[in-house]
Amino acid sequence: MTPTTPLLAPTHLGQLPLPHRLVMAPLTRNRAQPDGVPSKLMETYYTQRASAGLIIAEATTPNTVGQTYPNIPGIHTRPQIEGWRRITDAVHAAGGHMFLQLQHGGRVGHPANSGHVPVAPSPVPLPESIHTSTGRQPSVTPRELTKAGIRATVADFAQAARNARQAGFDGVEVHSANGHLLHQFLAANTNHRTDEYGGPAERRVRFTVEVTRAVAEAIGPERVGLRVSPGNTVNGIEETDTDTLYPALLATLAGDGLAYLHLVTMNHDHPLFPRLRALWPGTLVGNPALGPALPADGGRAAAEQLLAHGADLVALGRAFLANPDLVARLRTGAPLNEVQGALMMYTGGERGYLDYPTLAQASDARYAAVSSGS
């Protein structure tokens, strides 16, 4: 692969210059401190991957009740802001840019993790157990958000966006995907409301619209992305009207001047992809569905297909997880590191997190092995 390949050609995101069209997708790794303060390990991890050009940092909670699992970072306390600032300063110094994903878990949470009964659009529990610091526990029935609770949550997202800017992030991504709170409002099986936030698709999109617009008003729409995952069934989601739900959402927000739409788990040949591309006038970040086994090319072929069919940028997750220097490897056609055991993604510590070698490190290790006669 050469630098003239569209995937590796320079581009921009609004006024933000990018060295190529690859984005590091947000990846939950459970390496924050118990109080949600980003750790030194996280600083090293993100700095190692600054050549991504644009990093969308992992799901980060805007308030305490929105916490999903143990050791998830937050952005609602001063120490959390200061912890993230150390990371953004290091990434910027290494030439990278960072957005922060804002995620409220909704019913994907547990009192053992957050100290609160989780909240959701309706009192419909997660149909599976949930990970806590003492092992998996049965999910609990969430409290239905009142209208006052909805207003407070919207305000928390807006404040989290302001906090993210104080922490040095170039922007934020509103997470309305993967079965978390905003997605729970979108999906009919988790949203049984009969007020203006429930019922037909045009009303179920209201909460996502209100959150996104409040965040955009707080820091400017050009610094705000929106992530959606049409048809995704993770965390017990069942969409019955995907083909009308997402066009209704995009039609409402298309004129707001957002930085990008991040479209997850959808390849170029999905029948809804061209419709959503046509509805969205701004930057579209594709994120291919690669299956449980990472392909040998790290998703490069799928990324190029997305670009050829209308995506402007492409986000890859596991390929960046296992290859701090992914861009250099793609430029030279070098082989990629394989992802280590899945459990290592979430077990804490350096193993499976900071110990993936770069090409230079692998070469040095081989040279040392030859020199020592081993």
Results as ranks from 00 to 15, higher is better:
108 V>G: 05
45 Y>A: 10
182 L>M: 15
331 R>D: 01
227 R>M: 06
282 G>F: 05
294 L>V: 10
266 M>I: 11
264 V>F: 01
125 P>W: 07
15 Q>P: 01
202 E>K: 13
109 G>L: 07
244 T>M: 05
56 I>L: 00
256 D>Q: 12
235 N>K: 08
238 E>A: 15
8 L>N: 08
184 Q>N: 13
72 I>V: 15
152 A>H: 14
364 D>R: 14
187 A>L: 07
257 G>R: 08
238 E>S: 09
107 R>I: 04
277 R>L: 06
64 T>R: 13
105 G>N: 09
218 A>L: 09
83 G>Q: 00
225 G>A: 07
282 G>N: 08
3 P>T: 09
276 L>V: 06
34 P>M: 02
11 T>R: 08
187 A>I: 04
155 A>P: 03
164 A>S: 15
337 N>C: 09
288 P>C: 03
133 S>M: 10
86 R>I: 04
41 L>S: 07
201 A>H: 06
191 N>P: 01
374 S>R: 13
201 A>P: 03
330 L>P: 09
241 D>P: 03
155 A>G: 02
86 R>Q: 14
336 L>K: 06
6 P>T: 10
354 L>F: 05
166 Q>I: 03
336 L>C: 04
26 P>Y: 10
187 A>V: 13
199 G>Q: 01
41 L>M: 14
39 S>V: 08
256 D>P: 02
208 T>W: 02
365 A>W: 01
300 R>F: 05
58 E>N: 12
115 G>I: 06
274 P>V: 03
268 H>I: 02
242 T>V: 15
365 A>M: 05
334 A>H: 14
15 Q>G: 02
217 E>N: 14
90 A>S: 15
316 L>Y: 04
270 H>N: 15
5 T>A: 10
327 V>N: 03
235 N>T: 00
349 G>W: 05
240 T>C: 01
261 L>K: 09
355 D>W: 12
231 G>P: 02
352 G>T: 05
7 L>V: 02
283 T>P: 01
217 E>C: 03
